[in-house]
């Protein structure tokens, strides 16, 4: 299901994940969020950028348990917990944030 970003058509799969990771930019993330009626705040971006760095380093999108723990280590315990992350990303922190970050669905997510 393609999305339109600044006049360009970008391919996504049936769940809205990018077909080609190279198509990602911040406007793509914003458009994906807009389609979910989600307004991206600083706090959202913190998680999105964290996921992009994690993928660059390890070539995977982390499972939600791993994401929560790693966020806690990097950004503090007040952010490294399910409540905080689910409030930001109600569709599931790993799934939804990975989508906005232009990554594949986390391994092990169904």
């Amino acid at each position: 299901m393609p999305i339109e970003v600044s006049g360009k058509t970008i391919e996504t799969d049936e769940e809205g994940y990018l077909a080609d990771r190279a198509d990602w930019n911040e406007d793509v993330a914003k458009e994906m969020a807009r389609l979910d009626s989600c307004d991206l705040s600083e706090n959202h971006w913190e998680v999105i950028n964290f996921l992009r760095e994690y993928y660059d380093e390890y070539q995977i999108a982390p499972a939600v348990r791993v994401l929560t723990k790693a966020i806690g280590k990097k950004l503090g315990a007040d952010k490294g917990n399910s409540k905080y992350l689910y409030e930001l990303f109600p569709y599931g922190p790993a799934k939804q944030a990975c989508k906005y970050a232009g990554l594949p669905k986390p391994t092990g997510c169904v």
Partner: peptide, 14 residues
């Protein structure tokens, strides 16, 4: 093809 060797370094997180 995907280089999956960096992923072994993430196993510790798991």
């Amino acid at each position: 093809v995907k280089n999956f060797s960096p992923t072994f370094r993430a196993l510790e997180d798991y």
